[in-house]
Design a protein around this nucleic acid. Sequence first.
DNA 1: CTTAGCACTCAAGGATATGGAGTGCTAATA
DNA 2: TATTAGCACTCCATATCCTTGAGTGCTAAG
Lengths: 357, 357
Amino acid sequence: MELSERKKKVLRSVVDLYIRTAEPVGSKAITALPDMNYSSATIRNEMADLTAMGYLEQPHTSAGRIPSAAGYRLYVDELMLDYRLSMDETKSINSAIEEKMQRVDKMVEKVAKLVSQATNLPAITAAARCGSACVSHFELILAGKGSIVLVLMLSDDHAVNKVIKLPLELEDGDLKLLSAVLNASLTELPLEELTASRMEKVMASAGKAAPLVPVVLDFVQETLKSQCSPNMAVAGQARLLGLPEYRDVDKAQRVLATIDEEALCNLPAVMENTNGTRVIVGPENVADELKDTSVVMTKFDIGEGMQGMIGVVGPTRMDYAKVTARLSYFAESLSKLFAKPEQPQLPGAAGEEPKNE
Amino acid sequence: MELSERKKKVLRSVVDLYIRTAEPVGSKAITALPDMNYSSATIRNEMADLTAMGYLEQPHTSAGRIPSAAGYRLYVDELMLDYRLSMDETKSINSAIEEKMQRVDKMVEKVAKLVSQATNLPAITAAARCGSACVSHFELILAGKGSIVLVLMLSDDHAVNKVIKLPLELEDGDLKLLSAVLNASLTELPLEELTASRMEKVMASAGKAAPLVPVVLDFVQETLKSQCSPNMAVAGQARLLGLPEYRDVDKAQRVLATIDEEALCNLPAVMENTNGTRVIVGPENVADELKDTSVVMTKFDIGEGMQGMIGVVGPTRMDYAKVTARLSYFAESLSKLFAKPEQPQLPGAAGEEPKNE
DNA sequence: CTTAGCACTCAAGGATATGGAGTGCTAATA
DNA sequence: TATTAGCACTCCATATCCTTGAGTGCTAAG
């Protein structure tokens, strides 16, 4: 059944107010709002209806109303007014983000901190590869005194390396040979296709550098494996404790413990099938500990076949409008940042201004 | 003034009991202990003395005693009995640690988690370079379609790399030249000696690869800089909330916020001048928020001129004996782990057993 | 359909008793 | 002289009761 305009207005007001105050809101408080030209009795009737419909709840007979899960859901989906970020906010987000973010894992940590700061809630960030990674190019370098550097170019155009030290006298030629073999037989293969037989073949044709092969293969496997596993970071847990609904320490602890561990596995999965911003209101959470904790999350694009996710957790009574707005803005800005054809960074010597091209 | 043996025994008992129960301990509770063949009156007298000396405190007249900061100090320094880890504990720590820890930052995270788990308290881990790092070897590799990989071997025998993409047609020879120039003029220099004049010289003799130079230099600077800044991780904050002294949410929040931010700067500094395990009892902390929170920390050695630190924070009433024992054991095990002349890892193909050499 | 009015409900908060754990002191004891 | 039993006293924690006031639902009038 469709709600009357007035009912919607009342419901929205109740949610808005409850979000602000964390206290059950009574009919009188609603009448005090601007644009509410009805008596408290009328509002009371409307509220009684809304309660009967399951959108509001009463902690006890003589208390005001608080939104039910269904109420929040409706609020989030249809009722809430878009929150427009102020210039200050966009500016501060922009300037925070603008820094260089070299490595994905550091980026994840940083963004979690920023999001948490911007929302004043605990934040979770994740970054994961979409497709499977593979090595696009091998290189072995002799780096003096028995050290060899193995460099793997990956399919997403970044590189990883490992220093290998073996009590082994090798010459440039030996390494060239092994590189060639590796490049010929192990490039563009995802982890699953690194079969034992392929590896043995490499081993067989490695020549003098054969002792290197196991180390190399091991590193390749490890690298590809770690490329699949998502990078995650949590920040600002302590902020939860500032909120009245988490005065109950046990509850807070349960929630924090959960986002510390479990969420780390679940959230990316939840995000998979969604686009844009997603809101999970309290009881909609599967995890029991989160039954009265809401989660808001958004995807963003990192270049090179990677996807990112930012999310915050907070009380069911959270300022969904603000939080979603800020999260979306973050996601957008980050996507843009990574979409930029990574500018050749051209800073001059220390302290000098960067030259233009 | 030296305490009588009996006074020591009483004090130790009071602290032990208070650590266990978090409740003020009365004279009767002490007499109930084994090996305490005195009446409660005698104990009361001793406790009165200890209170007068400042080792115990009374929340109010008709309550038992709790240790004062001085009491804890004495307990930690002289009274507490060494706690011997059980086989189970050492085993579980060993097996947890035994995993490969490729990268320092991942290691730091992992160890923080483990320590927190082992002590059931929030844990902080840090790893920092002692001396200043410098580049020991440059290498530039052509990696197909306009991508160049810059590899820096660092003085501590690991390598970092960066993929550079420039709209620039370069040949192997050009890169060789630039590598040579870089190796000739910029190796073995700490960050401070990377003067503008040196850099300009490189620029001048870079030949066709000149446009690469600013990118390279920038990366070098950034790398050296990041080598100095310590790696830190915090884990298990939520565990604080399980403790009765942090039922006061505000207090818990303050403490958590502090270890999230400030500690990140201070702790390594504190550690600098200390060896072995260090205990900071509540009010000995400089930070106001930590005035009734204790910190226990220990150093350990990571190879390659790096130092690590593990620490936990908890209530002043924390089981110092257990915590210091566990931390020390961790530190020892980690030091050993890193001291091992990094075994050439020789795993075979996926799933097979590693071959022996 | 809206609203004024009224009786009713119920949690929150303050005041007041009560119980009990623990103390300090004194006098008796070994 | 060191220890201990005994006793009066203190004071927090807990339970109980009461009051207050915000908020409701219902009814009847506008």
